[in-house]
Protein backbone atom coordinates (compact mmCIF):
# COMPACT_ATOMS: atom_id res chain seq x y z
CA UNK A 1 0.00 0.00 0.00
CA UNK A 2 1.38 3.34 -1.00
CA UNK A 3 0.81 6.53 0.84
CA UNK A 4 2.25 9.98 0.54
CA UNK A 5 1.74 13.48 1.86
CA UNK A 6 -0.55 15.36 -0.45
CA UNK A 7 -1.01 19.10 -0.53
CA UNK A 8 -4.26 19.54 1.25
CA UNK A 9 -5.47 16.44 2.91
CA UNK A 10 -3.75 14.48 5.59
CA UNK A 11 -3.40 11.27 3.66
CA UNK A 12 -4.05 9.73 0.28
CA UNK A 13 -4.16 5.97 -0.15
CA UNK A 14 -4.17 4.03 -3.35
CA UNK A 15 -4.92 0.42 -2.49
CA UNK A 16 -3.80 -2.03 -5.18
CA UNK A 17 -6.57 -4.58 -4.78
CA UNK A 18 -9.78 -5.41 -3.00
CA UNK A 19 -8.05 -6.97 0.00
CA UNK A 20 -5.96 -3.88 0.59
CA UNK A 21 -9.05 -1.74 0.21
CA UNK A 22 -11.05 -3.77 2.70
CA UNK A 23 -8.16 -3.83 5.15
CA UNK A 24 -7.86 -0.06 4.88
CA UNK A 25 -11.59 0.41 5.42
CA UNK A 26 -11.47 -1.82 8.48
CA UNK A 27 -8.35 -0.30 10.01
CA UNK A 28 -9.17 3.35 9.58
CA UNK A 29 -11.15 4.71 12.44
CA UNK A 30 -11.79 8.07 10.81
CA UNK A 31 -14.15 8.58 7.90
CA UNK A 32 -12.49 8.28 4.54
CA UNK A 33 -13.47 9.83 1.24
CA UNK A 34 -13.43 7.40 -1.67
CA UNK A 35 -12.41 8.84 -5.01
CA UNK A 36 -12.86 7.39 -8.46
CA UNK A 37 -12.79 9.95 -11.28
CA UNK A 38 -13.07 12.90 -8.85
CA UNK A 39 -15.27 14.81 -11.28
CA UNK A 40 -17.68 15.85 -8.54
CA UNK A 41 -15.14 16.14 -5.75
CA UNK A 42 -12.57 18.32 -7.53
CA UNK A 43 -15.02 21.10 -8.26
CA UNK A 44 -16.14 21.18 -4.63
CA UNK A 45 -13.05 22.68 -3.13
CA UNK A 46 -14.40 22.87 0.40
CA UNK A 47 -15.26 19.19 0.31
CA UNK A 48 -11.92 17.86 -0.82
CA UNK A 49 -10.05 20.25 1.36
CA UNK A 50 -11.95 19.13 4.41
CA UNK A 51 -11.46 15.45 3.57
CA UNK A 52 -8.77 14.06 5.88
CA UNK A 53 -8.23 10.78 4.11
CA UNK A 54 -8.69 10.25 0.41
CA UNK A 55 -8.79 6.74 -0.98
CA UNK A 56 -8.10 6.54 -4.68
CA UNK A 57 -9.98 3.56 -6.11
CA UNK A 58 -8.46 3.58 -9.57
CA UNK A 59 -5.93 0.80 -8.85
CA UNK A 60 -8.52 -1.65 -7.51
CA UNK A 61 -9.34 -3.72 -10.56
CA UNK A 62 -12.52 -5.15 -9.09
CA UNK A 63 -13.87 -1.60 -8.97
CA UNK A 64 -12.11 0.09 -11.82
CA UNK A 65 -12.00 -2.61 -14.48
CA UNK A 66 -14.87 -5.05 -13.85
CA UNK A 67 -17.25 -5.27 -16.77
CA UNK A 68 -18.72 -8.74 -16.77
CA UNK A 69 -21.55 -9.53 -19.12
CA UNK A 70 -23.64 -12.40 -17.85
CA UNK A 71 -26.70 -14.04 -19.22
CA UNK A 72 -29.17 -12.00 -17.21
CA UNK A 73 -27.29 -8.74 -16.81
CA UNK A 74 -23.99 -6.98 -16.46
CA UNK A 75 -21.75 -6.47 -13.47
CA UNK A 76 -20.03 -3.10 -13.60
CA UNK A 77 -17.25 -1.97 -11.31
CA UNK A 78 -18.32 1.13 -9.41
CA UNK A 79 -15.29 3.08 -10.66
CA UNK A 80 -15.45 2.05 -14.33
CA UNK A 81 -15.39 5.20 -16.50
CA UNK A 82 -18.69 5.92 -18.20
CA UNK A 83 -17.07 6.11 -21.62
CA UNK A 84 -16.29 2.39 -21.37
CA UNK A 85 -19.98 1.71 -20.90
CA UNK A 86 -20.84 3.96 -23.80
CA UNK A 87 -18.46 2.10 -26.08
CA UNK A 88 -19.28 -1.44 -24.96
CA UNK A 89 -21.16 -3.24 -27.77
CA UNK A 90 -23.24 -5.50 -25.53
CA UNK A 91 -24.20 -2.73 -23.16
CA UNK A 92 -25.20 -0.66 -26.14
CA UNK A 93 -27.37 -3.48 -27.34
CA UNK A 94 -28.99 -4.55 -24.10
CA UNK A 95 -28.93 -1.35 -22.03
CA UNK A 96 -29.44 1.51 -24.50
CA UNK A 97 -31.12 3.57 -21.76
CA UNK A 98 -27.95 3.41 -19.66
CA UNK A 99 -25.78 4.37 -22.62
CA UNK A 100 -28.07 7.30 -23.36
CA UNK A 101 -27.86 8.71 -19.84
CA UNK A 102 -24.08 8.28 -19.76
CA UNK A 103 -23.78 10.16 -23.04
CA UNK A 104 -25.71 13.09 -21.64
CA UNK A 105 -23.49 13.49 -18.58
CA UNK A 106 -21.11 16.45 -18.56
CA UNK A 107 -18.84 16.25 -21.56
CA UNK A 108 -16.66 13.63 -23.20
CA UNK A 109 -13.84 14.55 -20.83
CA UNK A 110 -16.10 14.06 -17.85
CA UNK A 111 -17.38 10.76 -19.24
CA UNK A 112 -13.80 9.54 -19.52
CA UNK A 113 -13.37 9.87 -15.75
CA UNK A 114 -16.79 9.78 -14.14
CA UNK A 115 -18.29 6.52 -12.89
CA UNK A 116 -21.63 5.08 -11.82
CA UNK A 117 -20.33 4.60 -8.28
CA UNK A 118 -19.29 8.21 -8.07
CA UNK A 119 -22.63 9.40 -9.37
CA UNK A 120 -24.43 7.37 -6.71
CA UNK A 121 -22.10 8.28 -3.84
CA UNK A 122 -22.34 11.97 -4.66
CA UNK A 123 -26.05 11.52 -3.93
CA UNK A 124 -27.27 14.51 -5.88
CA UNK A 125 -30.97 14.52 -6.77
CA UNK A 126 -29.72 15.74 -10.15
CA UNK A 127 -27.34 12.78 -10.65
CA UNK A 128 -28.08 11.79 -14.23
CA UNK A 129 -27.62 8.03 -13.98
CA UNK A 130 -29.70 7.63 -10.83
CA UNK A 131 -33.20 7.60 -12.38
CA UNK A 132 -31.95 5.14 -14.97
CA UNK A 133 -30.33 2.85 -12.40
CA UNK A 134 -33.55 3.06 -10.47
CA UNK A 135 -35.80 1.92 -13.33
CA UNK A 136 -33.30 -0.80 -14.22
CA UNK A 137 -33.54 -1.99 -10.60
CA UNK A 138 -29.79 -2.03 -10.33
CA UNK A 139 -28.35 -3.92 -7.41
CA UNK A 140 -25.52 -2.18 -5.59
CA UNK A 141 -22.78 -4.29 -4.05
CA UNK A 142 -21.37 -2.63 -1.01
CA UNK A 143 -17.99 -3.24 0.59
CA UNK A 144 -16.06 -3.94 2.67
CA UNK A 145 -16.92 -7.58 2.25
CA UNK A 146 -18.31 -9.50 5.19
CA UNK A 147 -17.27 -13.14 5.10
CA UNK A 148 -16.12 -12.62 1.55
CA UNK A 149 -19.45 -11.24 0.36
CA UNK A 150 -20.55 -7.76 -0.63
CA UNK A 151 -23.78 -6.54 0.85
CA UNK A 152 -26.49 -6.15 -1.78
CA UNK A 153 -28.64 -3.01 -1.62
CA UNK A 154 -31.01 -1.19 -3.92
CA UNK A 155 -30.43 2.41 -4.98
CA UNK A 156 -33.04 3.84 -2.64
CA UNK A 157 -31.42 2.03 0.26
CA UNK A 158 -28.16 3.84 -0.50
CA UNK A 159 -29.13 7.28 -1.79
CA UNK A 160 -31.26 8.81 0.96
CA UNK A 161 -31.46 12.47 0.02
CA UNK A 162 -29.35 15.40 -1.21
CA UNK A 163 -25.76 14.49 -0.31
CA UNK A 164 -27.02 11.79 2.03
CA UNK A 165 -26.19 8.10 1.72
CA UNK A 166 -26.42 5.18 4.07
CA UNK A 167 -22.74 4.47 3.45
CA UNK A 168 -21.25 5.30 6.83
CA UNK A 169 -18.46 3.47 8.58
CA UNK A 170 -16.16 3.46 5.55
CA UNK A 171 -18.52 1.46 3.41
CA UNK A 172 -18.04 1.87 -0.31
CA UNK A 173 -19.84 1.00 -3.51
CA UNK A 174 -17.89 -1.82 -5.12
CA UNK A 175 -19.96 -2.95 -8.06
CA UNK A 176 -23.32 -2.50 -9.65
CA UNK A 177 -25.28 -5.37 -11.15
CA UNK A 178 -27.74 -4.29 -13.77
CA UNK A 179 -30.28 -6.89 -14.92
CA UNK A 180 -31.09 -6.75 -18.62
CA UNK A 181 -34.62 -5.65 -19.39
CA UNK A 182 -36.46 -7.74 -21.98
CA UNK A 183 -35.24 -7.07 -25.48
CA UNK A 184 -38.60 -5.65 -26.54
CA UNK A 185 -38.92 -3.35 -23.54
CA UNK A 186 -39.79 0.27 -24.18
CA UNK A 187 -37.30 2.78 -22.84
CA UNK A 188 -37.07 6.54 -22.60
CA UNK A 189 -34.60 8.91 -21.05
CA UNK A 190 -34.49 12.65 -21.40
CA UNK A 191 -32.57 15.28 -19.55
CA UNK A 192 -33.37 18.97 -19.62
CA UNK A 193 -30.55 21.30 -18.65
CA UNK A 194 -29.84 24.97 -19.22
CA UNK A 195 -27.20 23.94 -21.77
CA UNK A 196 -26.74 20.94 -24.05
CA UNK A 197 -23.55 19.79 -22.35
CA UNK A 198 -21.85 20.39 -19.02
CA UNK A 199 -25.11 21.26 -17.35
CA UNK A 200 -26.75 19.94 -14.23
CA UNK A 201 -30.29 18.74 -14.93
CA UNK A 202 -33.32 20.88 -14.25
CA UNK A 203 -35.50 17.84 -14.81
CA UNK A 204 -34.93 14.35 -16.14
CA UNK A 205 -37.06 11.31 -16.61
CA UNK A 206 -36.37 7.62 -17.12
CA UNK A 207 -39.09 5.21 -18.18
CA UNK A 208 -38.87 1.47 -18.77
CA UNK A 209 -41.93 -0.51 -19.77
CA UNK A 210 -43.19 -3.78 -21.15
CA UNK A 211 -46.50 -4.47 -22.79
CA UNK A 212 -48.28 -7.77 -23.00
CA UNK A 213 -51.34 -8.21 -25.14
CA UNK A 214 -51.91 -4.46 -25.44
CA UNK A 215 -51.74 -4.01 -21.70
CA UNK A 216 -48.93 -2.54 -19.67
CA UNK A 217 -47.39 -5.50 -17.98
CA UNK A 218 -44.60 -3.61 -16.29
CA UNK A 219 -43.83 0.07 -16.01
CA UNK A 220 -41.08 1.80 -14.11
CA UNK A 221 -40.89 5.57 -13.97
CA UNK A 222 -38.24 7.59 -12.21
CA UNK A 223 -37.87 11.36 -12.41
CA UNK A 224 -34.65 13.19 -11.56
CA UNK A 225 -34.02 16.60 -9.97
CA UNK A 226 -37.60 16.89 -8.74
CA UNK A 227 -37.49 14.86 -5.52
CA UNK A 228 -34.94 14.93 -2.69
CA UNK A 229 -34.40 11.20 -2.93
CA UNK A 230 -34.29 9.35 -6.22
CA UNK A 231 -37.38 7.17 -6.02
CA UNK A 232 -39.72 5.76 -8.57
CA UNK A 233 -43.08 7.39 -9.11
CA UNK A 234 -44.97 4.47 -7.68
CA UNK A 235 -48.43 6.00 -7.65
CA UNK A 236 -48.12 6.91 -11.27
CA UNK A 237 -46.75 3.48 -12.09
CA UNK A 238 -49.66 1.74 -10.38
CA UNK A 239 -52.09 3.89 -12.34
CA UNK A 240 -50.62 2.45 -15.51
CA UNK A 241 -49.65 -1.08 -14.58
CA UNK A 242 -52.05 -3.72 -15.90
CA UNK A 243 -53.94 -1.11 -17.94
CA UNK A 244 -54.13 -0.63 -21.68
CA UNK A 245 -52.10 2.39 -22.79
CA UNK A 246 -54.61 4.98 -24.00
CA UNK A 247 -54.56 8.75 -24.41
CA UNK A 248 -56.84 9.06 -21.46
CA UNK A 249 -54.50 6.96 -19.30
CA UNK A 250 -51.56 9.03 -20.42
CA UNK A 251 -53.24 12.27 -19.39
CA UNK A 252 -54.13 10.76 -16.03
CA UNK A 253 -50.56 9.59 -15.56
CA UNK A 254 -49.32 13.09 -16.31
CA UNK A 255 -51.60 14.57 -13.69
CA UNK A 256 -50.49 11.89 -11.23
CA UNK A 257 -46.78 12.41 -11.64
CA UNK A 258 -47.14 16.19 -11.35
CA UNK A 259 -48.66 15.56 -7.92
CA UNK A 260 -46.15 12.92 -6.99
CA UNK A 261 -43.01 15.02 -7.45
CA UNK A 262 -41.93 17.72 -5.03
CA UNK A 263 -39.63 20.03 -6.95
CA UNK A 264 -38.02 23.13 -5.51
CA UNK A 265 -37.10 26.49 -6.94
CA UNK A 266 -33.35 26.93 -6.96
CA UNK A 267 -30.66 28.50 -9.13
CA UNK A 268 -31.31 26.07 -11.96
CA UNK A 269 -35.07 26.23 -12.35
CA UNK A 270 -38.45 26.81 -10.76
CA UNK A 271 -40.95 24.56 -9.00
CA UNK A 272 -43.51 25.32 -11.67
CA UNK A 273 -41.25 24.51 -14.61
CA UNK A 274 -39.94 21.32 -13.06
CA UNK A 275 -43.39 20.06 -12.17
CA UNK A 276 -44.86 20.86 -15.56
CA UNK A 277 -41.96 19.51 -17.58
CA UNK A 278 -41.85 16.28 -15.56
CA UNK A 279 -45.44 15.77 -16.65
CA UNK A 280 -44.63 16.74 -20.23
CA UNK A 281 -41.69 14.36 -20.40
CA UNK A 282 -43.88 11.54 -19.12
CA UNK A 283 -46.45 12.38 -21.77
CA UNK A 284 -43.72 12.48 -24.38
CA UNK A 285 -42.51 9.05 -23.28
CA UNK A 286 -45.92 7.45 -23.14
CA UNK A 287 -47.13 8.87 -26.44
CA UNK A 288 -43.95 7.58 -28.03
CA UNK A 289 -44.73 4.19 -26.61
CA UNK A 290 -48.32 4.42 -27.73
CA UNK A 291 -47.30 5.16 -31.30
CA UNK A 292 -44.66 2.43 -31.42
Amino acid sequence: MKSNQPLNSEKVFRPANLDELDALAAQTAEGVTYVAGATDLLVQEERWKSARILVDLTAVKALHATLEVRENGVLIGAAVPLSRLIRHPLIRERLPILVETCRQIGSVQIQNRASLGGNIANASPAGDTLPVLSVLEAELRIGPRQNGEFEKLSLDQVMLGPGQTSLNGNRYIAQIFIPFPPRDAFWYFRKVGQRQALAISKVSLAVLGKKKEEKIEEIRICPGSVTPQIVRAQKTESLLRGQPLTEERIEKARAAIECEVSPITDIRSTTEYRRRITGELLREALYLWLRN
Binding site: Q194, R195, Q196, A197, L198, I200, I267, R268
Partner: peptide, 27 residues
Protein backbone atom coordinates in the same frame (compact mmCIF):
# COMPACT_ATOMS: atom_id res chain seq x y z
CA UNK B 1 -30.76 33.20 -23.13
CA UNK B 2 -28.45 31.67 -20.54
CA UNK B 3 -26.72 33.99 -18.09
CA UNK B 4 -28.80 34.80 -15.06
CA UNK B 5 -27.85 36.20 -11.67
CA UNK B 6 -30.27 36.96 -8.89
CA UNK B 7 -29.72 38.67 -5.60
CA UNK B 8 -30.67 37.04 -2.34
CA UNK B 9 -30.59 39.70 0.33
CA UNK B 10 -27.92 41.48 -1.63
CA UNK B 11 -25.84 38.38 -2.33
CA UNK B 12 -25.35 36.96 -5.83
CA UNK B 13 -26.75 33.44 -6.16
CA UNK B 14 -23.95 32.10 -8.37
CA UNK B 15 -20.69 30.42 -7.48
CA UNK B 16 -18.98 29.72 -10.80
CA UNK B 17 -19.08 27.58 -13.91
CA UNK B 18 -21.48 25.00 -12.46
CA UNK B 19 -24.32 27.42 -11.83
CA UNK B 20 -23.55 30.37 -14.08
CA UNK B 21 -24.33 28.97 -17.49
CA UNK B 22 -22.62 30.49 -20.50
CA UNK B 23 -23.03 29.13 -24.01
CA UNK B 24 -20.66 26.30 -24.89
CA UNK B 25 -19.83 24.92 -28.33
CA UNK B 26 -23.14 23.03 -28.10
CA UNK B 27 -24.98 26.37 -28.00
Amino acid sequence: LYEKIKLQNGKFDISGFTDYIIPATTE
